[in-house]
């Protein structure tokens, strides 16, 4: 399966939210990283058809989605950012409603709902009103509805926003489990969400695709740019002005700074360390220091 986005541009008046965006997705998890306002949600809304693009084309297995119409929708699953549900529906009723909306075969619906509620660990809550679900449960219900039509392309917009760490891990494992035979596009600004599960990462800034690569390649490219330096606490402010600091840790020896810089911040004391994805994020999206 292949989804190709070709020269997608989306403008809101004079403001360009997506600028000539092109990418090709095949099977696996794609992490769409970018700060707030970078165009992630716009991109997703264009992909799922909620927004009309100003120019460009989307191809699904080589065919234009404009021509595919409903067939395209049959192949996508979508979890909106902060999904809201109908408060007077039970979990089961909501799933049933979505099953009918997604044109599932009537006789398959109960079985499909049961299996998905089991998958997302909500089978015990199927008679509970959606308004009585916790944040994590709601996200899992959102995932379950997105999977109802067994989509080949699953699109998740900020799926872990507002979840506690335990729910976040649970959610991550769930995504890994369902991504084997489909394409998952996961938009987030939380690096840890995708650091473990993404096969490829897209970095989006001001509506432009900066990079799209495997996480290991992104990390490899950052080699030699991340430093660990221990300084006295009174020097921290000065270093923050000069460099991009991805972490500050107070130890008995002083303040341990994790610095992202192409230049060595201190030849005598700084140690070169292996980069992680947060360093990559900071490198591309953080405010640059003076040096």
């Amino acid at each position: 399966m292949e989804i190709e986005l070709k020269n997608i541009t989306k403008k809101y008046g004079a403001n360009t939210a997506l600028d000539d965006f092109s990418a090709v997705f095949t099977t696996g998890v794609y992490g769409l990283l970018g700060p707030n306002g970078s165009g992630k949600s716009t991109l997703i809304n264009v992909i799922v058809g909620l927004l009309k693009r100003n120019s460009g084309e989307i191809f699904f297995d080589g065919k234009s989605v404009s021509e595919l119409g409903e067939t395209y929708l049959e192949n996508i699953g979508y979890l909106p950012q902060y999904p809201k549900f109908y408060p007077n529906y039970t979990v089961y009723e909501f799933m049933h409603y979505m099953s009918v909306l997604k044109a599932l075969d009537k006789k398959d619906i109960p079985e499909r709902i049961d299996s998905l509620l089991t998958l997302v660990n909500l089978e015990a809550y199927k008679d509970r009103k959606t308004s009585a679900l916790s944040g994590g449960m709601r996200q899992r219900l959102g995932i379950a509805q997105a999977l109802l039509n067994n989509p080949r392309f699953l699109i998740l917009d900020e799926p872990t926003a507002g979840l506690d760490p335990l729910e976040r891990i649970r959610f991550r494992n769930l995504i890994s489990g369902i991504a084997e035979e489909r394409t998952v596009l996961l938009a987030t600004h939380i690096v840890s969400d995708i650091s473990f599960i993404a096969n490829r990462i897209l970095l989006l800034k001001n509506g432009k695709l900066l990079l799209m690569d495997k996480p290991e390649n992104l990390l490899k490219a950052m080699n030699g740019n991340v430093w660990l330096l221990t300084v006295s606490p009174e020097l921290v402010m000065e270093y923050q002005k000069r460099f991009q600091i991805s972490n500050v840790r107070y130890t008995e020896a002083g303040c341990e700074l994790r610095i992202v810089s192409e230049k060595c911040p201190d030849v005598n004391q700084a140690d070169l360390v292996l980069p992680n994805l947060e360093d990559v994020y900071l490198y591309y999206f953080g405010e640059r220091g003076a040096e």
Partner: peptide
């Protein structure tokens, strides 16, 4: 915001 569920499904 539930309109998104409606507009991204076939029926």
């Amino acid at each position: 915001g539930t309109q998104q569920f409606l507009l991204t499904s076939v029926n």
